[in-house]
Computed example of a mutant assay.
Amino acid sequence: MEESTKQLAKMLGERIRSLRLEQGLSQEQLGERSGLHTNYIGQIERGEKNLTLETLLKIARSLGTSLEQLLHSVDPLDVQTPLGQIVVMLSERPVADQALVLALMKTVFSWEEEKRK
């Protein structure tokens, strides 16, 4: 693996390990949930494996999270930008609140389009 790829694999493995431990899961339990071998989970967490999207998706689902949340700390959004601030704020809110904000944004953007006509 190239050095930048090794670093990415290591960061992703650390993120997976952190989420697994937060949920009180062993590597064996995560392996059972995701259909992956326990040894493979260990290799992933140590950054020794270059993962496929399919494997990442299995792990994310097994941890009850999205790919975006799984990858967030690996390549975090710049929280100094307005978009970054919006994403951080919304990610901390319940899904119902997120849906409400989305509906509000669509209404505002639609209103802006109509105003321009």
Rank of each mutant, 00 (worst) to 15 (best):
N50W: 05
T52S: 13
I16L: 07
V88L: 11
L56M: 10
Q69P: 03
T107E: 12
K117F: 08
E48S: 10
D78Q: 14
P82G: 09
V108E: 13
N50P: 06
T107W: 07
V95H: 12
I16M: 04
G84I: 02
S66N: 06
I44C: 08
M89G: 13
L104V: 08
T38Q: 01
S26D: 15
G13S: 06
V101S: 06
Q69H: 09
D75S: 13
H72E: 10
F109Y: 10
L83M: 10
A99Q: 11
E113P: 10
W111A: 05
L25K: 07
N39R: 11
G31K: 02
G31R: 04
Q23A: 04
H37A: 02
V87I: 12
E28C: 03
D75G: 11
V95D: 15
T81S: 04
L21Q: 15
Q85Y: 02
K117D: 06
K106Q: 15
Q43S: 13
E113Q: 13
T38E: 07
W111K: 15
I16S: 09
Q85C: 07
R17W: 05
S73P: 04
S34Q: 02
Q43M: 10
R46F: 01
L71T: 07
A96Q: 04
I86V: 14
L67H: 01
G42S: 14
R93Q: 11
L51G: 03
A60T: 10
Q29S: 13
S91H: 08
Q85G: 11
Q98M: 04
M89P: 10
D97M: 00
M1H: 03
I44N: 12
T5I: 00
G64Q: 05
E3C: 00
A103P: 00
L100V: 08
T81M: 07
L21T: 15
L56I: 06
E45V: 04
G84Y: 01
G35K: 07
Q80P: 10
R46S: 09
E3L: 01
R61G: 09
D75C: 12
L57S: 05
K6Q: 06
L77C: 10
P76Q: 11
Q80Y: 12
T38F: 08
E68P: 05
G84C: 03
A9W: 01
M11P: 00
M105V: 13
E14W: 05
D75F: 11
K106G: 13
A99R: 13
E22N: 14
E48Q: 13
Q7G: 00
S34T: 01
G84T: 07
V79I: 14
S66L: 01
A99E: 14
L90I: 14
E14P: 00
L67F: 05
D75L: 11
L57F: 06
R61N: 14
